[in-house]
Nucleic acid binder design. Structure first.
Lengths: 383, 383
DNA sequence: GCGATATAGTTGAATAGTTAAACAAACAGT
DNA sequence: ACTGTTTGTTTAACTATTCAACTATATCGC
């Protein structure tokens, strides 16, 4: 690699991230925030505009008199990312542009038994890819269970009946010839929140994903409920040891219990009518949430999935429990909101995960060839 | 700043961190890990050796035939850091060299009432500083309570009876004319673990600090017990919103309770003799620990403070509860250990916090003057 | 012992990214 | 129109980094 090229790439990626993250930044903003000279920013941003990734847009409000700064923005249409949420007999697809805008969403039934997971995914993804013009950054896959995103495999999954490691990314990447990432659905949702709210201040948060097996047993009154947790910390989604974070089981769980909570399955079935029992469940969930929020010092919670009609009830439970669990007088303000991408939170989040990686600052050690495939760089050769 | 100097500083700081973090690295190791040319490493490391920060030491085992690589190491004696743990009527001081080695430790009684905290700290620190030759990187202060490390103030503290914000760093920095940092004691312990174990693989962990008010009431059988939690995630200590993480209160806590647990103070007093009640307490602590470990996907716990004679009992409790709380069969291995710096965990950790910052990779945005005071750079003008 | 081979580290010239400085552009107030 | 101010561009100079050639030092086989 000729001479000093790496530094240019580093600063280029820093500029890209700053523009992607910030809201209507000008060249002078960039030069101040990144501690680069104005001329350097001019040069590098001109290059990015030439390449079609950046564009001038709008005008930033001037600070006092003087020439009005011109805003810079990512050209969302430069490329898009596909996100997929796979359920046992349904699939949700979401396509995002580079700015994280949802530009396409579909949902339809499929038969995705344990053995057919890879075939179904490959087929569905290929359908979208072949029917869509333009560059593709990659595909993200979200599903319920214990997923090792780094190794790209599903380790365990109750919903799909998976009990041994299933190497999914390797196969998909070979068949689709496009970067593939996989993650737990709750973690994907957290990525989605991070990307959707990236232009505001990045605060840490807890994401609660309430999944019901609606698609497998649509006839029961209150379908089997499972809770996945994810953490957005320091602008990134927390992965524990071998991506095993988010596995929740209540403190009050009994050895013979068949749910994650103290209540049993048959108790849960009458949830929609039995208000007292529902409140007990929500309270159990809320007190655990409160513990996590206070120990981790968080003040944001997002709820996604099938909370549906009981959203407000759950919200009040969490708020009350978090305040009563706080050891000092006067708990700071608590924000409890719903998932940004709504129903497509997991699918869009899986796509967002790719965006986040593409707009990461590429520090020295990242410049190896394997890593480069996940970036804007690799795209330019395409169409 | 002349031309391209910033980039050199970036790579210099990357080299420093790699040497500090890694164990017996050679120039060729550095060039491979940081993706820099051999010659660049030669140049920059020569400069660092000239400046007295780096030194050649030992020889790295050769891989096959060829010239034996020469190891590089940080000169620990280039400077030292002071850490202080303040208790209501005692103080512990620990001095570390640049390699994090404990080179001095003292402990003695003081009267540190709420009003005298700053005076006591300033006096004690000045005593050590004036009696010790060589450069000082800075001073770290650890104490129990809700501490905002970023703003440098104590927000709340039960032990010291502090109920309004106390701006401590500003005053100390002015009086001592040396960089000062303050943190919650449990968080300091976590910094200590990160630094002490930095040469091994960095795994996330939970730190449990069991504090008794031994110094205030040495006559009671089982002194008042308080539990502080801290998290080491991704090589850094997790701070929540305004550094409020680590505040623990049991799920079973009752509104009229006077401890963090479901047991009351008078129950705790008979702990040392009443085995059954002690086990109930440990079990309560352990089940909460288990929840955190599993949700966060952690497999390491360190215990510090006054666990003393019951260390093994507590350890077994945590291990058992974590396994039974894990929702899948066969929980991965769990490591439960004691604090690396032992009795001086908080004090040494407060010092380690400074080291960690000094050896951080200085990315562009960090180069402002205020930040520069916390680095090796600023030291060279001294003596 | 002596090449053959392989790896680690050094030196010097070429390269290219960054910067400072001067300049042009665009705006507000008087 | 004049002044002052801020943003953005151009150009020449600087210097960090790299490449290529070289030296130093090890193992291995004979």
């Amino acid at each position: 690699m000729p001479a000093n090229r790496k530094n240019a790439r580093l600063n280029t990626s820093r500029i890209l991230r700053e523009v992607w993250t910030g809201d209507l930044v000008s060249r002078i903003d960039l030069s101040r925030r990144l501690v680069l000279d104005k001329s350097t920013v001019t040069l590098l941003s001109a290059e990015l505009i030439d390449r079609g990734i950046l564009m001038e847009q709008g005008s930033v409000p001037t600070s006092g008199g003087g020439r009005r700064p011109t805003g810079l923005g990512i050209r969302g249409d430069f490329a898009s990312v596909l996100g997929v949420e796979l359920l046992p007999n349904a699939i949700r697809l979401a396509r995002l542009d580079l700015n994280g805008e949802l530009i396409e969403e579909t949902e339809h039934p499929v038969e995705a038994s344990k053995e057919r997971i890879i075939d179904v995914l490959a087929q569905e993804i290929r359908d979208v890819l072949s029917g869509t013009p333009g560059r593709f950054l990659g595909v993200g896959v979200a599903l319920s269970g214990l997923v090792d995103g780094v190794r790209g495999c599903i380790r365990r999954s109750g919903l799909f009946g998976i009990e041994t490691d299933l190497d999914i990314v390797r196969d998909l990447r070979r068949r689709l010839e496009i970067p593939v990432m996989i993650e737990n659905d709750a973690n994907c949702c957290a990525w989605g929140e991070l990307v959707a709210r990236r232009k505001q201040a990045t605060d840490d948060f807890l994401f609660l994903l309430l999944e019901s097996d609606y698609f497998t047993t649509p006839d029961t009154d209150f379908p089997r409920l499972s809770l996945g947790m994810a953490l957005g910390l320091d602008g990134r989604v927390h992965h524990g040891r071998s991506s095993s974070s988010g596995e929740f089981r209540s403190l009050l769980h009994r050895a013979d219990g068949d749910t994650q909570f103290s209540l049993n399955l048959k108790d849960l079935e009458r949830m929609s009518t039995d208000g007292e029992r529902r409140h007990a469940l929500f309270d159990e969930l809320a007190s655990h949430t409160a513990l996590l929020l206070n120990v981790l010092g968080l003040d944001r919670v997002y709820v996604g999935g099938d909370a549906g009609p009981w959203w407000q009830e759950l919200r009040e439970c969490i708020d009350a429990r978090t305040r009563s669990n706080w050891p000092y007088p006067g708990r700071a303000e608590l924000h409890i909101g719903q998932a940004g991408y709504g129903r497509f939170a997991a699918a869009a989040g899986a796509a967002a995960m790719h965006l986040e990686r593409a707009f990461a600052v590429k520090h020295g050690e990242m410049f190896e060839e394997r890593q480069l495939t996940h970036g804007i760089e690799a795209l330019e050769e395409q169409v």
